[in-house]
Design a protein around this nucleic acid. Structure first.
Lengths: 347, 347
DNA sequence: ATGAAAGCGCTAACAT
DNA sequence: ATGTTAGCGCTTTCAT
C-alpha cells in the first residue's frame, strides 16, 4: 500500500545495523565480531569488550536469514496438525517445543484444517523453511507420505503408522487400548456397544475401530456410528447411537464423550446406571465432569518426547525407521458400570 | 553427536540443487530461473517449460534463507503465549494463522510458560527471525513492553492494555463484561460473591478484578480468592472460597468454573439452587456441562482477526497505536439463579 | 589472536 | 525477453 518506500533502490525492510558497522565502530574486523557473536572462544577480552559495547551502541541484532544462509540451516522445525483447536495436539506440541528449544530450534506451526490435500501442500510449502517436519495424526495418503519420506528433510510421524512408509513414528497403540476398554465393558456384562467414531480420515479412528472389531471375538457386538470427535458432533450423533439400543457407548475421545453425556443427560438417561460411557485421551476435564469419565490415558508428554528424540536422531543423520510406542493406560472411573437393561430407543 | 560429518569443509547440511544447477540444466541464466520462480511475468513459455522440467528433474527446492536474505525478510511472524495448553489461546492463534498464511506469512510459536522474564527473553530471541511479533496476554512488565515498542519490529498486543506503552492492541473489555456479570447476579438477589481469581500476572485477571471492585458500588460485596485459572487450582481453591459464605462464585474462566463445579458437586452443594456459578470465555464445553454454564462469550475469532489486521497495518508501515476492542457478550444459562440462603461453610 | 576474503543461494538492477 | 553481475549479512578458511 505505502508508496513512500520506493525511494531507495533495493530497499531493505527492517534494516538495522550490520556486522560490518559493528566492526567499524569497534575498530576490528567482521571476523572478530562474528567470533564474539558465536562464542567461538579465542577473542582477547579487551577486544570482546569493545565489540560488545559497539553492539550495544548500535542496537545491533544478527540477521537470521544471513546466518541461516551461511550456516546452511535456519534451525526451524515445522509441525503440522489437523486441528489447532484440539487441546490434545497442543499438549504434544508443547512438549515437542520444549525439546526443540533446548536444542536451539524454533517451531513453525501450521494447521491442515483436517484436509489431507492441504496438509500435503502445507508440508511441501513448509519444507524449504525447516530442518525437519513433524506430522501429528497426519491424514496424508500413503503415497504422499512416501513422497515426503523420499526427500532429504527429516520427517517424523506422530500417531500414524503406515505400512510401506519409511518414516520414524511415535505413537500410542490405540487398537490395543481400545481392546482393553472393551474387555472392561465385557466383564461388566455389556454385550452390545456403540462406537461413536472420530473422523474417518484419522488414523486413530481406524485403529480404535479395529480394536472394536477385534472385540467381537470375545462376544461383544460392536456397532459404528459416525461422528467427528468433537463435543457438538457427538451430541448430535447420540440419537442415532441410541437407536441401536446399546448398553454402553465407546466415544472416540473425551470431548466426544462429553458431548454424548450432554445428550444423555438431556434425555434423562443416567450414566452409568442406564448407560455406560467411555472416553479416550484422559484430558484434565475427564476427571472433573459428573460422572467422572472412564477413559484411556494417552500420554501426550511421552509422545512429544519420543517425537523429538526421533527428530533429533534424524537431524543428526542417524537413520531410524523405528516405531516407538508410548504406553496407554486404562483409567477406570465412574462412567462405566454393570450392564443394565437397554434403555428405550428414542427413535 | 555424529563425528562422521566432518569430512567436507564448510559442509552444507541438507544441500540440494541450487538455482545455478537448474539454470545450467535448462540452459538458461539464473535470472531466468528466478523469474519463473517468482512469477515475475516475462519469460517465454518455452523457456519457462524447460526451467520447470529442470526443476522437476533435479528436485530443486528454493533455499529459504537465501531468499530471505535477498528479500530482506523471512516472512515469519512470531506468536508468544503464556500457556500452550489453554484452548482459549489456540483459538486466537488459529485465527491469526489463517490471516498470516493468506498474506504469505508463516507463524513461529513459542510459550513463555507463564514466566514474565522468560517471555521477554523469548521475544528478544525471536525478534531477529520474524517480521512481526504478537504477544498473547503478555505478562512482560511495562518497561519491557516499552523496550519492545521502541524497536523497529512491529509488535501487537492481545489482551493487554498498558498505559504509556505505544503498541497497537486487540482486546476484550474484560472489566466491563465482569461488571455486567455482577449486575446479573445482583439482580438475582446476590449480595456476596467470591471471585475465584486467575494468575495475578495476567492482565485479564486484573481487569476482571477491577470489574469486581466496581461492582461494589452497586452494593455487591466481592471477595477475592486466589487461584490460577485452571481446573485443578480452582477445585482446590473452592474450600477457601466457601469459607466466605458467598451465594455466588465468579470464576476467572470456564475451566476454573468446571473445577469449582466439580468441588461443589463433591460437597453435595447444588448449582444453581444453593450456589450460583459463572465462567468466562464461553469455550464449547461450557454449554455441555451440567448445569450449562452462565458465562461471557469472549470472541476469539474476532480477536485473532483484529490482531492480524493490526499486524498487517504495522507490516505495511502504517503507524497505528489504536486499541481495538472485540465485543464480549453475556451468555445466560443454567448455573445462575436466585440467591439462596448461604450454604454452610465447610471449614 | 586477528584480519582479508571467499563464499552460502537468491533477487533485481542494469545491460543487451 | 534474457543474461551478467553486484550485492544481501554472516561464517569460516587461510594467512599472518
Amino acid at each position: 500500500m505505502s508508496e513512500s518506500a520506493r525511494q531507495r533502490k533495493r530497499q531493505t525492510p527492517k534494516s538495522g545495523a550490520t556486522i560490518r558497522m559493528v566492526a567499524k565502530e569497534a575498530g576490528v574486523s567482521t571476523a572478530t565480531v562474528s567470533r564474539v557473536l558465536t562464542q567461538s572462544g579465542t577473542v582477547k577480552p579487551e577486544l570482546e569488550e569493545r565489540v560488545r559495547r559497539a553492539i550495544e551502541a548500535l542496537g545491533y541484532e544478527p540477521n537470521a536469514a544471513a546466518r541461516g544462509l551461511s550456516n546452511g540451516s535456519l534451525r526451524n522445525i515445522g509441525i503440522i496438525m489437523p486441528d489447532m483447536t484440539n487441546p490434545y495436539f497442543f499438549h504434544v506440541v508443547d512438549q515437542v517445543t520444549r525439546g526443540a528449544s533446548e536444542d536451539g530450534y524454533r517451531v513453525l506451526m501450521a494447521s491442515s484444517y483436517g484436509n489431507p490435500d492441504q496438509e500435503l501442500a502445507t508440508a511441501l510449502e513448509l519444507r524449504p523453511q525447516v530442518d525437519g517436519l513433524i506430522l501429528l495424526s497426519s491424514r496424508i495418503g500413503a503415497s504422499g507420505l512416501r513422497e515426503l519420506a523420499r526427500a532429504k528433510t527429516p520427517t517424523v510421524l506422530v500417531n500414524r503408522v503406515e505400512q510401506g512408509v519409511d518414516l520414524p513414528v511415535a505413537a500410542v497403540d490405540h487398537m490395543a487400548a481400545t481392546m482393553q476398554l472393551c474387555g472392561h465393558l465385557f466383564s461388566l456384562g455389556h454385550r452390545k456397544v456403540v462406537y461413536l467414531s472420530g473422523s474417518t480420515l484419522s488414523w486413530q479412528d481406524q485403529e480404535r475401530w479395529k480394536g472394536m472389531l477385534m472385540a467381537r471375538h470375545m462376544g461383544l457386538e460392536t456397532v459404528r456410528v459416525e461422528s467427528e470427535g468433537t463435543i457438538e458432533s457427538a451430541y448430535e450423533a447420540m440419537d442415532r447411537a441410541l437407536g441401536f439400543k446399546p448398553t454402553a457407548i465407546v466415544a472416540f475421545n473425551d470431548l466426544a464423550a462429553v458431548g454424548a453425556l450432554s445428550r444423555l443427560q438431556d434425555l434423562g438417561i443416567s450414566v452409568p446406571d442406564q448407560m455406560s460411557l467411555t472416553g479416550f485421551d484422559d484430558i484434565p476435564l475427564s476427571r472433573h465432569i459428573q460422572p467422572h469419565l472412564t477413559t484411556v490415558h494417552s500420554p501426550t508428554r511421552e509422545l512429544g518426547d519420543l517425537a523429538w528424540n526421533l527428530m533429533s536422531q534424524s537431524l543428526a543423520g542417524e537413520a531410524n525407521l523405528e516405531v516407538r510406542y508410548a504406553l496407554a493406560e486404562l483409567i477406570l472411573r465412574d462412567s462405566t458400570g454393570p450392564a443394565a437393561r437397554s434403555v428405550a430407543s428414542i427413535q
